[in-house]
Amino acid sequence: MKRQVPLMLVFTLALVMIVQYFVPNDFSLDTNEFLLKWIIIIGIFAMALGIWSLIRVSYEKIRRRVPGWQYPIATLLGLAAMIVFGFDYGRHFYTQEGLENYMFIHLFQYIIIPIQATMFSLLAFYIASAAYRAFRARSVLATVLLLAALIVMLRFNPYLGTFGVYLEKTTSWLLNVPNLAAKRAIIIGLGLGAVATALKVMLGIERAYLGRD
């Protein structure tokens, strides 16, 4: 009951979805659409676990006065504010007015966007120091990597004049030809790996998702 039923469910539903893909009649398409909604709904209910976990961890940190306990207050206040404004102060649970709430939009625009963009832009500094360590031309392959990266990075340099035009064309070629070949090989490798893993899950060889008893 505890382990066999989930294994049977995985196998049966995976088989149904595979058969559905190869038999695209009205009934199978409706089934596909319906089951896709199931996983959206289950996924959203699962997200509640994550939110609850975030609240509990933050609350515990505040309650126990662990070092830095003040910061989770900002987390909880931010979470509460977005939920209150997102439901338009509790007036609109069922319609999308909450998404148009003034505070909800502005908290997104002036908190999430600046912080997220700045965090990613910070990586420019760290990636530069990583590049210094990684790109030292110690072998032919490292030199190839270095040259490709340099060409791509220099392409928008306005001081290169006519040379910049050639650089732009070389960059475009590098991105569209060798880079494409490398990406395709990686995608094919990943695809084969994903299919193999999916088959292992479907056949019950891989059972990590069941956890421990």
Binding site: V5, P6, V10, L13, M202, Y209
Partner: peptide
């Protein structure tokens, strides 16, 4: 485990093809 199994079963069935 049951909803997780349903989620994984549907996801796996979609993924393979």
């Amino acid at each position: 485990r049951w909803p997780i199994a349903i989620y994984i079963g549907i996801g796996t069935g979609i993924t393979i093809p």
